[in-house]
Amino acid sequence: MLLQFQKGDIVRHLGLLDLQRTMQRALRRSNLPVAYSKGFNPHMVMSFASALSSGIAGDAELLDVSLSGETTEEECLAAMNRVLPPALQASRVRLVDDRFPKVSAALRTVRYRITLHGGEARRIAEDVPAFLAQEEIMAVRKTKKSETLVNIRPMIHELTAEVDEQADTAVLEARVSFVEQATLKPDLLMEALCAHAQAELPRCEIRRTQLLGEVDGQPVPLIDL
């Protein structure tokens, strides 16, 4: 079962482990025929298509759960929404064959909506075309072990900006790579953009709005693959 759910604003600080535990308990309460692993300490066979960092909200996150019995998509959706708290409601269920490769393996790009607040939001937004016009954008990617200089330009597939003059905010819509060797985190994108615009990093809210795979070079929602 592929369950598409939101990680709402009020629970955006949930970490992966807390979210995992919450989903397990919801699955137990749902009475859906969830499959358990064999072995001494059986556990549910489930995984997230992609872990979402603490602090980031999500509109269409994906949980992959193995089922061991007959059910329907409608039944699953209703059962899960009965037991999930309001901030984690599900929007879609798709039942797929177990032979289906792990859904996370098909992930190619993701979309983020980044809302910038404050005086410099506008200037940053207006800098987007010039930022994208660069052939190469070098940025420092930090991991626990090392810092490496990488060109992030090829990882940015789409980036648009819209300014809301009244609210003193700007909204960026970005589609970026999300594969093993080339994942562009939204904070690194923001860092590079602000550096280019010569602006301070503003307060921003980040939502992940879509998880995408690819068919014939075109982005397709992961759940539809």
């Binding site: 709402g8 009020i10 629970v11 600080h13 919450t22 603490s54 602090g55 999930l84 708290p85 307060r203």
Partner: peptide, 24 residues
């Protein structure tokens, strides 16, 4: 409040929104 939660340890302490919390 939401802004503060970005800056503290264990934000889940102040989050609310749990399963079975009563909203009236």
């Amino acid at each position: 409040i939401d802004g503060l939660l970005d800056r503290v340890q264990k934000p889940a302490r102040y989050m609310g929104g749990e399963m079975n919390a009563v909203l009236k």
